[in-house]
């Protein structure tokens, strides 16, 4: 098994955090995993992208050319990376940021999953949880990582924050998972 994942949106949406959690969850399952970030100079608002590779075998370059799973947070990200998604690949959309019509650029063999991540995140108190909501939907729909290991990775990611922050994120994950 080897999966190429790209998560992209703009700075401030938690793109890097979401990628880091997937990478960590894979590591918890003793799979090989790499994460590689790229972003603009802006702290918020610039283009942000991370590449995650999860594999049972050796991973040479952490940079990938073709995408198995694309987590798309903005229209700009869709325009930039839609052509790299493999036939029979999967795209998860934050449907509060990308309209249905825009997704027609993808070929018919690509599976689309729509998650109103902003709305769901807002319902538990803050739109910032949208990244973790999408992670929930990701794990439910795509069978590459166990739910328990992702939850452990989320716990590790928020270990240094207030417990309340962790609790909200776990709630956000469940929201996405139980869609």
């Amino acid at each position: 098994m080897r999966k190429h994942i790209v998560i992209s949106g703009y700075g401030g949406q938690g793109i890097m955090l979401a990628g880091g959690i997937l990478c960590q969850a894979a590591s918890i399952e003793r799979k090989n995993s790499t994460f590689f970030p790229s972003y603009g100079a802006e702290v918020r608002g610039g283009a942000a992208k991370c590449q995650v590779i999860i594999s049972d075998e050796y991973i040479g370059s952490p940079i990938l050319k073709d995408i198995d799973i694309f987590v798309c947070f903005t229209s700009m990200a869709l325009k930039k990376y839609s052509s790299y998604v493999k036939e029979n690949g999967i795209v998860l959309f934050n449907s509060d940021m990308v309209s249905n019509d825009e997704t027609n650029v993808l070929s018919k063999n690509i599976k689309k999953i729509f998650v109103s991540a902003n709305t769901l995140a807002d319902s538990i108190g803050n739109v910032l949880f949208a990244n973790v909501v999408i992670l929930g939907a990701f794990i439910k729909n795509i069978n590459i990582l166990q739910k328990t290991s992702v939850i452990s990775a989320i716990k590790e990611a928020f270990a240094s924050k207030k417990k309340q922050v962790l609790d909200f994120n776990l709630l956000a994950f469940e929201k996405g998972y139980n869609l």
């Binding site: 880091g20 990478c23 590591s27 090989n32 995993s33 790499t34 994460f35 590689f36 970030p37 991973i59 370059s61 952490p62 940079i63």
Partner: peptide, 9 residues
């Protein structure tokens, strides 16, 4: 920059 910025075990 790749080895420096990549995350792995």
């Amino acid at each position: 920059g790749i080895i420096g910025q990549m995350l792995e075990k």
